[in-house]
Design a protein around this nucleic acid. Structure first.
Length: 272
DNA sequence: ATCCAGGAACTGT
DNA sequence: ACAGTTCATGGA
């Protein structure tokens, strides 16, 4: 879905039917520089690219309050100092966010990435530039027509295949969209709507609200990665219980998604 | 081998 | 509302 090379992030997007490769860089900490594969793009495309980038990195978020909260929190103090400036890396496409969350349920991340790669390379569009191939996440209209067996071949379980095709069908019928979810604008209402979808429980709903709908207070509290990170940060020999996390996260009110994201980041040992 | 993964639906109480 | 069971498969 994306590649990082020479300090640039490459990402393929589709605007108005055109596939456009973005080369995203940042020369100073207060700027983002984007180059397009399309020459002389019209203004309307430039605007679409700008809003995409803005959403991808959650740029409307003012992080001052979060850092204020985190600097007074024993758990967050360290990760915030370490990854200062990190913003939520969002998944603007609702279908991608839901599908990815469903794929990743109850399996290790390595295998989840394998599944996603197979899914994308089987059903997604791609563009090859200078010998490098870039992929677009599959469109829900295409997935809506599939059968469970089509996804079983990729080693998705029958259940997950049903869930993913079900989500695609809901979206294809116009019964589920990012716009309609965002119109609710009340945390519990949005979460309830998401959880009414087969295959979407509390964890997935919160994950999607965090990574796609940009709720800074979304909190996938049952997440095992979060538990692992907390165990590490607190130097515990066991993972914390849900009750313990509820207690310790009281300070994070309003910023649970960012707290979770920074803690997830602490699990990723490889230095970029 | 054994445990467990960035869970959720289903079933029984 | 709540607890236990089933699904399902690769990574470490």
């Amino acid at each position: 879905m994306h590649q990082i090379k020479d300090g640039y992030l490459f990402k393929l997007i589709k605007v108005d039917g055109d596939l456009i490769l973005l080369r995203i860089g940042s020369k100073t900490i207060h700027s983002i520089e984007v180059a397009l594969s399309m020459s002389n793009p019209p203004e309307i495309i430039l605007e679409a690219v700008k809003s995409y980038i803005w959403e991808l990195f959650d740029c409307d978020r003012e992080l001052g309050d979060f850092y204020e909260v985190a600097s007074n929190d024993d758990i967050l103090k360290e990760v915030v100092a370490k990854y200062y400036g990190l913003r939520m890396i969002c998944i603007p496409d609702l279908f991608e966010a839901l599908t990815w969350a469903i794929m990743g349920q109850q399996i290790n991340l390595t295998f989840a990435y394998t599944l996603k790669k197979r899914f994308v390379e089987q059903f997604g569009e791609n563009l090859t530039i200078e010998g490098e191939t870039y992929w677009l996440f599959p469109d829900f209209t295409k997935i809506a027509h599939l059968h469970v067996d089509d996804l079983r071949k990729l080693q998705l379980t029958s259940r997950k295949a049903e869930y993913i095709i079900g989500v695609a069908k809901l979206m294809a019928r116009g019964e589920l969209s990012k716009e309609s979810l965002l119109q609710k604008q009340d945390y519990q209402q949005v979460k309830k709507s998401l959880m009414s979808i087969r295959g979407v429980g509390a964890w997935t709903a919160d994950y999607v609200m965090m990574k796609c709908l940009q709720f800074p207070d979304a909190f996938p509290i049952a997440d095992v990665g979060l538990h692992q990170a907390l165990k590490n940060q607190l130097g515990m020999e066991r993972k914390p219980t849900i009750d313990e996390i509820m207690e310790r996260s009281k300070n994070w009110e309003g910023w649970q998604a960012y707290a979770t994201f920074y803690l997830w980041r602490s699990l990723y040992k490889k230095t970029i």
